[in-house]
Structures are given as structure tokens and as C-alpha cells.
């Protein structure tokens, strides 16, 4: 059964499965250890906060699969018993930053972005989103122990209806401990007043929509030993390292598809139902313009409806005025009515033709040409339903091709029938 239709085939809202949209996707990292030449790095560990720290050093080497920490580890299968970690170069410290960029391949409605760290969590970082495939970026969330200083934003600002589409800065999740295994999880709708009525909130629907996610690590946590003499071992201990980057959400299809598929070009697109079209089912498919496109809701599927052109036209367009006049029922206007029909639904015969009532209006030959006599008729246009031509004085017949009773034919084409004396 198709989730987009109930048993009798009535359309209903449907949404794709909730997935980790980052899984298996390529992540571009602005810095990866050992990428150019093998490098040393050291891992700090301590039983718990305040206990003495121990430092063990290793080599990061891109040419050795056992020692490499590529960005691919961010979105590979996350095995807690065998963590694979991407790792940046050492001590890329503010004002320098390290960026991770992930393209989702299409618009997604993002529910959360999470990062599981192999290193201490950053002192400051920002999660951005793009809605135009990386052309422009919008902040999603700021994290910092010093929101005002680092990002000129208040810490934990209250979110109101007026600013629900703005990123907030918070000092939560910025503790340096645990030194490994810390998690940052950003929930896009957390604390947003309209979240409970998401269906009717275009603002939040827009807010959670993203085609790309970018994480910018802005400042490393340190123990303050990075500037001491012989600081090299210390600096070799400060880097960003993440084992798992997740982007939880659904392929955005506006309620008109239950899954996303790869199209011929290999791009991810919605498998649109309800006569909708486009990668996000965000418009009506051709010839289905009898009412404006709308997102589906829990109560109403808002499927697109075909124009009614009585099989006489292949194209139509939407007219808002007609739609309103019809009580928001029908606004389609057929284009290029064929078979000698006319009207917004190609439902009557055009001038010079009349209805053949022995055939339905949808029949190709529903309209017959008027057959008005070149001399007896006063014009070539006949009555739409009877085919009666306009006759000159004294002339009779549907086609005005004979004189009326009491009249006889004359020699004048102007007055073809004259009264019998």
C-alpha cells in the first residue's frame, strides 16, 4: 500500500522516513592531520577532573590506513567498540578555525545535528546550515563559554515568536570534560515557541530546512600550557577530533512523498505523489493547475488537481481571481482549446461552429461547422446549440438555403427571396 493514499485511494499526507542524512556522505574538512606529511599528536587522559593527566603520543599518517584519520570516519558506520575518528591538524587555534562541510544532496528538514568527540569538545563552535547548496550560510547554533566575547551574542537568550528563526548561543556542552567521548547535540526545534504547531508554521518549516551543514570549530579548549617554554608537546595535544557526525531529519517533500529516490542524474529527489512535481514536490505537475500548490497537512493532503478541459487541451494555467470567485474550488483556465472548442474549460464551440448534441462535449467531433448559405444567410455564425444560421428576409431553413412559404427566389443576391405577388 502507498502511504500517500488510504485504502479507497484518497490522498493523505505522507512523509519520508527519519534518517541520519549524513550517513555515508562525504564531509570536506579544512584540516586533517597527517594529510601532507606524517605528524605527531598526543592524547591527554585522566581518571577524572582534577586527577593528574597522562600524555601518550602517536603518529598521524595519511599513507598508513592504521594511522590515518580522514573525514570519511565522520560518517562511516559508528561502531562504539571500534571508534574511528577524524582528526584535525594540531593546534589550529583562534583566530584560525577548522571547518567541516557536509552536503546533504537535497533539501532536508533537519531535526538534530550531533557530533561525538574523540577529543575534548571545542571551547567555541558554530553549526551553520545552507538552503541553497552552499551558496549562502545561516547560523543554526553557537556554542561557547564566552558567547558575548566570541560571537557577540548573549548566552542562552530567550527565544520568542519574533526571533524563532535566529540562532542562539549557549555555553552548554562546552565543558572540557570528558576529555574524550563528549557529545554535542543540537535540536533545531528545541525551545522554539511554534514547535508544537510546526504544521502551521512556515517560519519553522523554513528554519529546519537545509541542503548543507557546516560546523566551524572556532576555539580549542586548553589547559593553558600552550604558551609555556617547550610548549610543543602541549600543542601536539590540542586538536579537534570527531568520531561521528549525524544529521537527523527527513527528506523534505512537503507532505507529498513517502520516500526519496535517485533520479537519472543520480540526484536525490522526492518520489512525488498527489500530482505534485519538483525535487521537493513543491509545485504541481503539468496540467494540474486547477488550484494553487500547497504543502500537505495532517488534516488535508492538498493534492494538485488536473484542469478540466474536456480532453480538448493539453495545457492550462492557474487564475487566482477565478479561483476566489469559485469559492476556492477551481481556478484552471485551459490554453489552446482544440477541435473548435472555446471557454476556460473548452466546454462550448467557438464562433462559426455549433454543438453536435449526439456526441458528448469531450468527443473530438463535438463541434460542427455552421453551414450557412452564402446568399440566404445574413452571416456565417450560427446558433451554438441548434446550428440555426441568421436568415435574410423571406429566407428559411437551418442553413438559410430556401425561401420561406409565400416567397419566391429573386435574381438579387441582396434580397434572394421576395414575396409572391
Amino acid at each position: 500500500p502507498d502511504p500517500c493514499y488510504d485504502e479507497p485511494g484518497t490522498p493523505r499526507r505522507c512523509i519520508p522516513d527519519f534518517v541520519n542524512a549524513a550517513f555515508g556522505k562525504e564531509v570536506r574538512a579544512s584540516s586533517t592531520c597527517g594529510h601532507k606529511t606524517p605528524s605527531r599528536f598526543c592524547v591527554l587522559s585522566s581518571a577524572d577532573k582534577g586527577a593528574e593527566r597522562t600524555r601518550t603520543c602517536h603518529t598521524c599518517d595519511a599513507s598508513d590506513p592504521r594511522k590515518y584519520h580522514p573525514p570519511a570516519y565522520l560518517t562511516d558506520l559508528n561502531n562504539p567498540h571500534n571508534l574511528t575518528c577524524w582528526q584535525s591538524e594540531n593546534f589550529v587555534q583562534f583566530p584560525q578555525n577548522v571547518t567541516l562541510t557536509l552536503s546533504l544532496g537535497k533539501k532536508f528538514e533537519v531535526t538534530y545535528v550531533s557530533l561525538q568527540f574523540c577529543s575534548p569538545r571545542p571551547e567555541s563552535m558554530v553549526i551553520y546550515k545552507s538552503m541553497d547548496y552552499g551558496k549562502t550560510w545561516v547560523p543554526f547554533q553557537f556554542y561557547s563559554t564566552q558567547c558575548r566575547k566570541m560571537y557577540n551574542k548573549p548566552n542562552r537568550a530567550v527565544i520568542t515568536k519574533q526571533n524563532e528563526q535566529e540562532a542562539v548561543c549557549t555555553d552548554s556542552h562546552t565543558d572540557m570534560h570528558p576529555l574524550s567521548g563528549g557529545l554535542i547535540a543540537f535540536s533545531t526545534l528545541d525551545g522554539r515557541p511554534s514547535a508544537h504547531d510546526f504544521d502551521n508554521s512556515p517560519v519553522l518549516q523554513d528554519w529546519v530546512t537545509a541542503t548543507d551543514i557546516k560546523v566551524v570549530f572556532g576555539r580549542l579548549h586548553t589547559f593553558g600550557d600552550e604558551n609555556e617554554d617547550d610548549s610543543e608537546p602541549a600543542r601536539d595535544s590540542y586538536f579537534y577530533s570527531v568520531s561521528d557526525l549525524q544529521v537527523g531529519g527527513r527528506c523534505k517533500c512537503n507532505g507529498h512523498a513517502s520516500r526519496c529516490v535517485k533520479d537519472r542524474e543520480g540526484s536525490l529527489v522526492c518520489d512525488c505523489k498527489h500530482n505534485t512535481a519538483g525535487p521537493e514536490c513543491d509545485r504541481c505537475k503539468p496540467f494540474h493547475y486547477d488550484r494553487p500548490w500547497q504543502r500537505a497537512t495532517a488534516r488535508e493532503a492538498n493534492e494538485c488537481v488536473a484542469c478540466n478541459c474536456n480532453l480538448h487541451a493539453r495545457r492550462c494555467r492557474f487564475n487566482m481571481e477565478l479561483y476566489k470567485l469559485s469559492g476556492r474550488k477551481s481556478g484552471g483556465v485551459c490554453l489552446n482549446c482544440r477541435h473548435n472548442t472555446a471557454g476556460r474549460h473548452c466546454h462550448y464551440c467557438k464562433e462559426g461552429f455549433y454543438r453536435d448534441l449526439s456526441k458528448p462535449i469531450s468527443h473530438r467531433k463535438a463541434c460542427k461547422a455552421c453551414d450557412c448559405h452564402p446568399v440566404g444567410a445574413a452571416g456565417k455564425t450560427c446558433n451554438q446549440t441548434t446550428g440555426q444560421c441568421p436568415c435574410k428576409d423571406g429566407v428559411a431553413g437551418v442553413m438559410c438555403n430556401r425561401c420561406a412559404k409565400g416567397y419566391q427566389q429573386s435574381r438579387s443576391p441582396i434580397a434572394p427571396c421576395i414575396k409572391i405577388p
Binding site: 452564402p374 446568399v375 428559411a396 430556401r402 425561401c403 427566389q409 435574381r411 427571396c417
Partner: peptide, 24 residues
């Protein structure tokens, strides 16, 4: 009683050449 159809050959088209149907 059905009246005969108009006979195009009977009409005098002098002065009405422009009205004369092509096939007459």
C-alpha cells in the same frame, strides 16, 4: 411542403461581383 433550395445560377451578380462565392 418543402421549398426548393436557392439556385445560385439564377442570381444576377452584376454590381455584386465582390459578394459572389468563389465556387459559383
Amino acid at each position: 411542403e418543402v421549398m426548393p433550395t436557392l439556385d445560385m445560377a439564377l442570381f444576377d451578380w452584376t454590381d455584386y461581383e465582390d459578394m459572389k462565392p468563389v465556387d459559383t
